[in-house]
Simulated assay, not measured.
Amino acid sequence: MRIGELAKLTGVSVPTIKYYVREGLLPPGERTSPNQVRYGSAHVRRIKLIRAMLEVGGLSVAAARDVVGELGSPERTVHGMLGVAQSAVTRSAAGRGAGEEWERAEHDVRELVRRRGWAVKPENPGWQALVQIVVTYRDLDREDLLTLLDAYAEAAGRLAEAELAKIAGVAGTDGKAEGVVLGTVLGDAAMAALRRIAQEDASARVQAGYWSA
């Protein structure tokens, strides 16, 4: 198909498709003549994935480029894709801190990981992000919120196991790799959305109990 057909089929404008190609998000089509380029079903699928990452997952173009670059790597593994996807969606901490508070937060996160029995290294992008959160809670004198971390970890552990079990059942490395990307990028967005919904329900129940007391 030509680029106009690709645009019509995907709902993405021709200039945007060309932008995706320039930015390395979308592989160029096959040039069939000096003025014609042909695209295929793989381009349709890739554009849908790009839109999902940018528009729904909220990734930057640079982060999405890293993800699709790994998808196209012949040496990719599902575990490696998970790391790339995690790095793409994890907001970088301000940088490793120093001093007693940071060390204390590092210890707390390490102990949380140990209690869960998780085989995780401090290089995991979520590790330092969580350390930064613990430091921030304490800086705001909200030690009470730290007691929620075990509940968060319990829910996260169950969810991670369910996600990886689902991905393991997908046929082919390509399908598994894409599943990791969508499960991580859109999974974060889905959990945030569901949490907002659940919070409203819980808040309404608490409010109703307060007025009926």
Rank of each mutant, 00 (worst) to 15 (best):
L54N: 09
S203P: 00
L164W: 10
N124H: 15
H79M: 01
L71M: 10
G80R: 11
A153K: 08
E100I: 12
A94V: 07
S33G: 09
L112K: 00
A129E: 14
V89C: 06
W211C: 01
T184R: 14
E23S: 12
M81Y: 12
A62Y: 01
L59S: 05
G99T: 06
A189G: 01
R38N: 13
N35Y: 10
A88F: 03
K121D: 12
G209V: 01
L145T: 06
E100D: 12
T136E: 11
G97A: 00
E163V: 13
L9V: 10
S41G: 07
A42K: 07
S92T: 05
D174H: 06
E161W: 12
A62Q: 08
V14A: 00
K166H: 10
I50C: 08
K48Y: 10
V68P: 02
P122C: 06
A7F: 13
R31T: 13
A208W: 03
G209L: 04
I197F: 15
K121R: 15
L26R: 09
P125F: 09
D66W: 01
V37F: 06
R158D: 13
A208L: 14
T90V: 14
K121T: 15
G58H: 12
V134G: 01
V131H: 03
Q199N: 06
V14K: 03
D108I: 11
N124I: 04
G175A: 02
T90A: 01
I3S: 10
L71G: 06
A213P: 05
P34G: 05
I47E: 03
G179L: 06
Y20T: 03
R205F: 05
I50M: 11
T184C: 04
V89D: 05
Y20P: 01
R142M: 08
Y39R: 05
E30H: 14
D141A: 15
H79N: 07
A192D: 09
G80H: 04
S212C: 05
P15M: 07
G183F: 09
Q86A: 07
A213V: 15
R104A: 15
V113M: 00
R114L: 02
V135H: 01
D108V: 14
T77L: 02
A151H: 14
M1K: 07
R158V: 11
K166I: 12
E101I: 13
L186R: 03
V181C: 04
S41P: 09
R195I: 13
E23C: 09
A88C: 07
A105R: 10
A64D: 04
H43K: 00
G179S: 08
T16Q: 11
E30Y: 04
K176M: 03
L194M: 11
L71N: 11
